[in-house]
Design a protein around this nucleic acid. Structure first.
Lengths: 341, 341
DNA sequence: GCTTAGCACTCAATCATCTAGAGTGCTAAC
DNA sequence: GTTAGCACTCTAGATGATTGAGTGCTAAGC
């Protein structure tokens, strides 16, 4: 239903448009060495491709532009992974050579490199801290009426929050509480913490610790308010501005606003599946993202520690290159994060 | 050398331009109730003001626009603080009512509110963590070859870093080291920490702890790499984009880039002095900031804990309103942060 | 001696008109 | 099936006229 030549021409058009951001015309195409057909022939095929819904015209006598369906077809059937050059590769390897011991630092760096290599915006979803297991509780009194609660997880993540301690609480009570916590709740995953605090700890404390009431409430509140937001990290937000499709500051604002406002985190999570996924334009399910494509790749840092890395760019983005980079990077990240505690 | 009327007209022009972003002409001005002079009179005064360097024309027959010198004069002599309305005030008070116990959270919220109230970008410089005093050291072993070092400061700030522990180090050695640290180095300010570690601790450890060498180096490195960057927090970056003077995406990029690239932190620090300071256009000392003004206000959260809050906007910004907001906010912040541990 | 009305002049912005260039669709010839 | 040719379309850019806001200057008015 589509000739070999038409496929070839479709590919050439998408490639051309990705490169120039300008509608590509038949005459222009026919001049390329890779497209040895006359302009008229190309025109005929273009007409067919348009009828099939893969191409669009911006106005009656303009060149063609890929439609969303066109991009989808290109991505599904015509995409050729770009072979990364030495410089890119060594750039990526560079961050792994640093042997960073903290997942968060590694992920931050990854975000920067990704956006620099692609010139688009990168969005990374760190491993879910809630899956970590408690390694140690600490409470450090600060003043007569406040203390810092610290939880260290098995992956070396540190959560901390200052909370209020009623004046009548004895330091020994605090110590007893910490000991109980460390005896009973070490090694449980963070997402269970609040429930466990509510059930068994409340009862235990009642028995062993004097006047624990208000302090415990305050502590529990502090500990449970660990924010999920930190999971999402951005790199190269500004790159958005340099894409011609976002020269309109209002459009740019909308897109950046949408990304920062976190539903993207959920979106990244959606890709529970392994591997690389591409969402084009309206497939992102939001008006602001109509002209954007999102490419995600998942990584795994040991059991239950999944995350995702993504690139957000215009629909007209360099899919081949981005897919290659994300693929290489996600593998590296899995390897490196798996190595950490 | 400048008549009362000229002052009045200068003020009206600056106010007008701030409001409309358009050059203001004599006819337009003469229509205002606050300027009861004929267009011709205004024209004459305008000509004088231009000769004095306070006004500029964008082209031979355009209205007038304040020059940098004009803004400076306006700010120094004509500025009237805006009386904040109830809504604004309650908005600001709102964050203080939350009674947050952590300086960082309070500052983050402040950044958001500031940018929302002004529609410009806010830049906050948190209190210098290096001035905090050590309250407690902790080291939590994570795995055979790594551990988390934690330092809690008297203000409840928590620094932590994962570091490498050579396999041949005995857990008891770690414990001994932590005990020594807590015996000797509690209550010193963080900025002295590295030096003290280098001097006395090295000697002490030599005497009391076996095979401490590599671990100590690793620990010291980890502890000393505490990053200064976190001191600067931004709010409302995107507001920059909605200012007509930054509709050119390239200009916007340059400004945002400049701000993120941290020399701004130094700039905020420059204002060691108390109170409110205004830098207009080229006074900021960087090409990218030519069209920007920066208004800073200092705050103090107890001895040695100084910080600054600032608004970055176009030179054409609403100085009166911003000054009022910053003034009110910095007082509140001083009060509130002083209350914290 | 200030202030103002009046007039000639300037410039940016807007609109219509025109042209060049790139592109299309269709038809007829190869 | 492929291509050359031709008539047609549409955008981008240039040109020119028009309008409106603004200026500077001069002379009249208070």
């Amino acid at each position: 239903m589509m000739t070999e030549r038409q496929l070839h021409i479709l590919q050439a058009i998408v490639d051309g448009f990705i490169q120039s951001a300008q509608p590509v015309g038949s005459r222009q195409l026919s001049k390329l060495e890779t497209v040895p057909f006359s302009a008229a022939t190309i025109r005929n095929d273009m007409a067919d491709l348009e009828e099939l819904g893969f191409l669009e015209k911006t106005h009656t006598s303009s060149g063609r532009v890929p439609s969303e369906k066109g991009y989808r077809f290109y991505v599904d059937h015509l995409l050729e992974k770009e072979h990364l050059n030495k410089e890119d590769l060594s750039r990526i390897r560079g961050i792994f050579n640093d042997r960073l011991l903290e997942a968060e630092l590694l992920i931050r760096k990854t975000a920067d490199i990704l956006s620099e290599l692609t010139n688009y915006t990168s969005v990374l979803l760190g491993p879910d801290v809630k899956q970590h297991r408690v390694k140690k509780f600490q409470i450090i009194p600060l003043s007569a009426d406040s203390a810092v609660a610290i939880i260290v997880t098995d992956a070396g993540h540190v959560e901390h929050r200052t909370f209020h301690v009623p004046e009548d609480v004895h330091p020994a009570d605090i110590e007893r509480m910490v000991n109980l916590l460390n005896d009973r709740l070490v090694n449980i995953p963070l997402h269970e913490l609040d429930a466990r605090l509510g059930h068994e700890m409340a009862r235990l404390l009642e028995r062993h610790v004097g006047r624990y009431g208000k302090m415990f409430t305050s502590f529990r509140q502090a500990v449970s308010s660990a924010n999920d937001d930190d999971r999402v990290i951005f790199g190269g937000m500004l790159n958005m501005l340099s894409q011609p499709e976002f020269h309109d500051p209002d459009k740019a604002r909308q897109v950046i606003h949408y990304m920062e406002d976190a539903p993207l985190a959920g979106m990244l999570l959606d890709f529970g599946k392994e591997g690389i996924h591409i969402r084009i334009g309206s497939e992102n399910g939001h008006l602001a993202m109509e002209d954007c494509s999102v490419i995600t790749a998942s990584y795994t840092a040991g059991e239950g520690r999944k995350g995702a890395i993504a690139i957000v760019g215009p629909t007209r983005m360099d899919y081949g290159r981005v897919v290659s980079i994300l693929d290489y990077m996600s593998r590296g990240l899995s390897r490196e994060l798996g190595r950490l505690p």
